[in-house]
Design a protein around this nucleic acid. Structure first.
Length: 131
DNA sequence: TTTAGGG
DNA sequence: CCCTAAA
């Protein structure tokens, strides 16, 4: 796992564990959307397909494990931290999580997870922004 | 406009 | 990836 990902996980864990001290979380999750790589290709007349990078998947999985999915969950956080502006990546991350869940045969009960309090989510993002 | 799921 | 009912 890349350093910045481990760094992100570590900081989020602290925040989750009531580490109220406003620690700065400054981690940039590279998004391949920022670079039209060779791995990208067009599907018919549709948009360019862009496989998620290993880092993106790792960040997605870890954040979802820690924050759950759905509103203010890991999917959203992964998205926000990737600094994307369109809804494109969010959809991709959501779909990726779904495929991972099926591939891992995760029981339905554990797919949802508890959405984190908006307060915590905001704190994580704020820390990131200020960092 | 964003969320959440099916297509 | 796309489409879209609901919120």
């Amino acid at each position: 796992m890349k350093r910045h990902v481990a760094e992100l996980i570590d900081k989020i864990e602290k925040l989750c564990n009531e580490g109220h001290q406003t620690e700065s979380v400054s981690v940039h999750i590279p998004s391949t959307y920022e670079r039209e790589g060779p791995s990208s290709h067009t599907i018919g007349q549709r948009r360019t397909r862009r496989p998620l990078s290993v880092d993106e998947v790792e960040a997605l999985v870890r954040t979802v494990e820690l924050l759950g999915v759905g509103r203010g969950g890991g999917v959203r956080l992964s998205y926000e931290l990737s600094r994307m502006q369109t809804t494109g990546l969010l959809e991709i991350l959501k779909d990726k999580w779904n495929t991972l869940v099926h591939a891992a045969r995760i029981p339905p009960e554990r797919r949802k997870g508890e959405p984190i309090p908006q307060e915590l989510f905001d704190r994580v993002l704020t820390a990131h922004t200020l960092g």
